[in-house]
Design a protein around this nucleic acid. Structure first.
Lengths: 243, 243
DNA sequence: CCAAGATTTTTGGCATACCAGATGCCAGAC
DNA sequence: GTCTGGCATCTGGTATGCCAAAAATCTTGG
């Protein structure tokens, strides 16, 4: 009743339709605090000291220059993510995952990635699949990954994320990224073994090949087995840095 | 050093050993609000009205009898879960998922469940696997599921949850439950088709059989295809109740 | 009667004050 | 010297109040 006939209005700005992208809503302190704390947690080495890492609301609010309110909201969000756990009247503790939890997460990752592989064989463009090789173009017989672990590790993660993205499934992408955030910190500690790294590269290439051949079952299997292999590896060789 | 030799002490209360049971930690208002709001959101039919459902901090704080602070923290948590989205200075809106989002989630569910099936074939006890049949013992030729849709739908969800639990993987369980919470609301609307329901029961039984036979590949495949079938079904027949 | 502008109201964001449980230090009793 | 009760203090939990942006409503000039 009251919304019609307004189509001819908007005399001032209508014609040009300037491509302004809805000015940045200036993300709130809550979200800024969330991002800042998340980054800080991911950056720190949670498994270094024997005592659990504690956070202090007041100290954080002072450090970030905001009041406790947005800090608390950010912490509530981090708690939903499983990064911290607040104990009433005691403190906020950064969660340390046990080895079996990490292994468990990697298995879930394997499940999601194999599904992504399956989907990719039916929808992705050949060219996009082949582009996955680029992540490893700097490595080969003359430049073995084992001698550039840090670099290879980055390429490795980037490859997996790019792979999942090709599935064009936001849910798979998001869930996998969440898992990677949790696993990554621990990953650095356990991936530094030359034997596993040596096996890693050929497996990646094999996955790409299966995708290119549109071999759904094989691609799924290779993606799954590759990541399950990592799970087994961590389970067997992972340091016992946990409580 | 200081804990030994105290065995003979405790003169006053030792002998009786009063049966006090660690007083309840009284969950905070924040968590109570979170649970209350979550339940309310899951219970309501989000897709009923054309306009999006909005929440109001002040109204909620009055309804629940607490101040806005715990409400806001609860909302921050719900936002992390993806149940609501708060738009600054506009309001808090209950998120409505599009059909393709639902389909996408179901595919992720399929991935997780097939991994669960895989694991079950190697670790679950025969007896626990067989017990899965109990969820469907009230249905059969003489009592077809199509004529007891509501009841069957409940049994259906319970079966899937029990199945995943047998994997003994907390991550798979949690992730699947999250997905089910999002999908369930929509599920009721789309599952009421007799053709799909008729196919559902035999597929479930086939999954159980593969598990009992410890046929890893087959169990995985059946679990995956069953749920992917639901995804395809929703994609094809799901109502267009979305925006 | 209508549209443009001014004004009031609504709504989430943030800061602050105060509360109560949990700890830890310390004086006083044995 | 050791144990115990009490008190200062630390920490998260909750309630309030105010702010600014956005929406809704009212006003006013044509």
């Amino acid at each position: 009743m009251s919304t019609e006939k307004t189509n001819k209005a908007l005399p001032i700005m209508a014609e040009a339709d300037i491509a302004i992208a809805r000015i940045a809503p200036e993300t709130s302190f809550k979200n800024k605090a969330y991002e800042a704390l998340k980054e800080a947690i991911l950056k720190m080495d949670i498994y270094a000291s024997p005592e659990p890492v504690m956070l202090d609301e007041r100290a954080l609010s002072e450090r970030l220059g905001v009041s406790r309110t947005p800090i608390r909201e950010a912490i509530a969000m981090l708690e939903q993510d499983g990064f911290v756990k607040t104990v009433p009247r005691r403190g906020i503790v950064v969660v340390r995952r046990t080895k079996s939890e990490i292994v468990d997460m990697i298995r879930a990752w394997a499940a999601l990635e194999s599904m992504a592989a399956r989907m990719i064989t039916t929808i992705a463009r050949k060219k996009d699949i082949s582009a996955l090789r680029d992540y490893f173009k700097d490595f080969g017989k003359d430049r073995p990954p084992q001698e550039h672990i840090e670099e290879y590790s980055k390429a490795n993660i980037a490859f997996h994320q790019a792979l999942i993205s090709l599935s064009e499934s936001p849910v798979l992408v998001d869930m996998t990224n969440d898992i990677l955030l949790h696993v990554r910190g621990y990953r650095q500690l356990t991936i530094g073994r030359t034997d596993r790294i040596a096996a890693s590269l050929p497996e990646h290439l094999a996955i790409i090949e299966a995708l290119e051949e549109r071999n759904t079952e094989l691609a799924e299997k290779r993606a799954r087995d590759h990541t399950l292999g990592l799970a087994t590896y961590v389970e067997t060789h992972g340091q016992e840095l946990f409580s």
